[in-house]
Design a protein around this nucleic acid. Structure first.
Length: 213
DNA sequence: CGCCAGGGCCATA
DNA sequence: TATGGCCATGGC
């Protein structure tokens, strides 16, 4: 990965160190968190997941009445939609007997297409589940990533898939590296690349265009 | 009080 | 392909 994209990775890695995601106990908890965190602060997701008191399983969600499920996840916001999303995503998982290894034996592109067919699972949620729950080498693009490449002098493309392909074509497919890079982009984004650019002290200061959204 | 967070769906052009 | 409205809570 000898290109200017790797310079971003190197700069962030030197500054922040070896960050890792995803804070979850089981693959299924990753899936749930991926839904609950949609346009939502992670602190709110933690409150919602905490409501389950260490009993967060596909079987429980499957049998829980919709209203009860909504009560539990309310702190994460958008609870009416997300309760539906959790239901259908859980159905999908159960259609594989909740067998992660069985899913991992399928082609990445196939699983990705299936996830995108689940109502409530878009590009980022699908990639988050693929990478963090199933450990497929797929890169997760998010709002911070899009923002970074709008401001950085690299033509990574305009759409989600374009930016994703741009990165994946320049950085070898590696679960650990993709995990770390995404975590670094988000950490940096929280400090320096929100809607308002806060470039002071940013490890990319000087090479970034500093343009605004 | 307003802004915004680790999006996605849907209608519209 | 690309906007815009909508969904909802909690931290700051």
């Amino acid at each position: 990965m000898n290109n200017s994209l790797s310079e971003i990775y190197q700069a962030l890695f030197l500054h922040y160190g070896d960050l890792q995601w995803w804070p979850a106990k089981t693959p299924y908890e990753v899936m749930v968190g991926a839904i609950l965190t949609q346009n939502t602060a992670w602190t709110n997701v933690e409150k919602a997941i905490g409501q389950f008191e260490d009993d967060l399983t596909p079987e429980r969600i499957h049998h829980l009445p919709l209203e009860k499920l909504q009560d539990l996840i309310r702190p994460s916001g958008f609870y009416k939609q997300k309760s539906q999303y959790l239901k259908v995503l859980t159905e999908w998982f159960m259609s594989y007997d909740c067998d992660v290894k069985r899913i991992q034996n399928l082609p990445l592109s196939d699983v990705r297409k299936e996830l995108l067919g689940v109502h409530g699972v878009g590009n980022e949620t699908a990639d988050s589940i693929l990478l963090y729950a199933f450990h497929f080498p797929t890169f997760v693009v998010d709002a911070y990533t899009m923002r970074l490449f709008k401001r950085y002098p690299l033509d990574a493309g305009k759409t989600y898939v374009q930016v994703k392909k741009f990165i994946e074509s320049r950085i070898p497919a590696d679960v650990l590296v993709y995990n770390r890079f995404h975590a670094l982009i988000v950490q940096n984004g929280k400090e320096h690349c929100k809607k308002k650019a806060l470039c002071e002290g940013c490890p990319l200061e000087g090479s970034c265009k500093k343009c605004f959204d």
